[in-house]
């Protein structure tokens, strides 16, 4: 059968008519759908609206369980609904969704009493990225010991694919950890600033606190600055910064994949 060339060339426009009202409750039911035998299609179309919105709220809830536990489900779902309408996903991979959600939370009128909530969300987003990151053997503890002492300042680390760092002016990591556990947590002083390292050395994602100066040090290393320069930056901020202990803890956590010597051929 030869298709009519005119029809064949035409790009059907049904999604352009069907889609806009899916995430916009103010819009009417699309005019290109109907029920059978002259039945109305308002409730019928609303099934799709509901599927889209509820499934995307559920997607955000599964990415941000600690945020939901903190706010309660009703608050969370209202907040998520606003976000979905403003910023629907652009990728079919839902585990990539919600990257703008922490910034949305930071600006969300009803969340202003929880100024640390956006940073908790940032940790949860980094947690999921670490969970899906590529499988790479982390750098072993012995690797640095093989570097001649006079070359230590030239060591450059490449970060492990799962490694992420974050600095918060709040106790975001403590709040995150307390709300990913089943049991109730004690009182937390939210005003204590925390620096965080997120890694996945093997199966499990780990979220750790970094010591004072550790975030500056690690950020420099993850940007491929040589160890000498990273250490100098950390010591400038924290004069008694323990370089050896920091490197050992970060390596143990699985922050690095490999190391090489700057200038080495």
């Amino acid at each position: 059968m030869q298709p009519d060339p005119v029809v064949h060339a035409l790009v059907p426009d049904y999604p352009a008519r069907f889609a806009p009202a899916l995430t916009d409750p103010a819009r009417a039911t699309p005019d290109n759908v109907a029920g059978p035998r002259g039945k109305a299609a308002v409730k019928r179309y609303n099934v799709y609206r509901n599927n889209v919105t509820v499934s995307l709220i559920n997607a955000l809830a599964s990415i941000y369980p600690a945020v939901q536990r903190i706010t309660g489900a009703e608050f969370f779902r209202a907040m998520a609904r606003f976000h979905i309408r403003k910023t629907p996903p652009t990728s079919p991979l839902l585990f990539e969704y919600g990257r703008d959600f922490p910034a949305f939370i930071a600006a969300y009128e009803y969340a202003q009493a929880m100024p640390w909530l956006a940073d908790v969300a940032r940790i949860e987003r980094a947690w999921l990225d670490a969970y899906h990151a590529a499988d790479t053997e982390p750098l072993g503890n012995g690797a640095l010991a093989e570097v001649p002492p006079e070359r230590l300042a030239d060591v450059v680390f490449s970060p492990h694919p799962a490694a992420r760092t974050m600095r918060s002016p709040f106790a975001a990591a403590t709040i995150f950890a307390a709300n990913r556990r089943e049991e109730p947590s004690g009182a937390i002083d939210a005003s204590v600033a925390e620096d965080v390292l997120i890694t996945r050395p093997d199966h499990d994602v780990a979220v750790r606190h970094l010591p004072p100066g550790g975030a500056i040090f690690l950020a420099a290393l993850m940007e491929a600055q040589p160890l000498g320069i990273a250490a100098a930056a950390a010591i400038e901020q924290v004069p008694d910064f323990d370089i050896g202990a920091a490197i050992a803890a970060m390596t143990e956590a699985g922050a690095f994949a490999t190391l090489y010597l700057k200038g080495a051929s």
Binding site: P12, Y14, A16, N32, N51, V52, S55, A59, P89, L94
Partner: peptide, 13 residues
């Protein structure tokens, strides 16, 4: 549709 992913199996004529 365009760049938006709706996460549902939507119907077609």
């Amino acid at each position: 549709h365009e760049t938006t992913f709706f996460n549902d199996l939507l119907p077609l004529p």
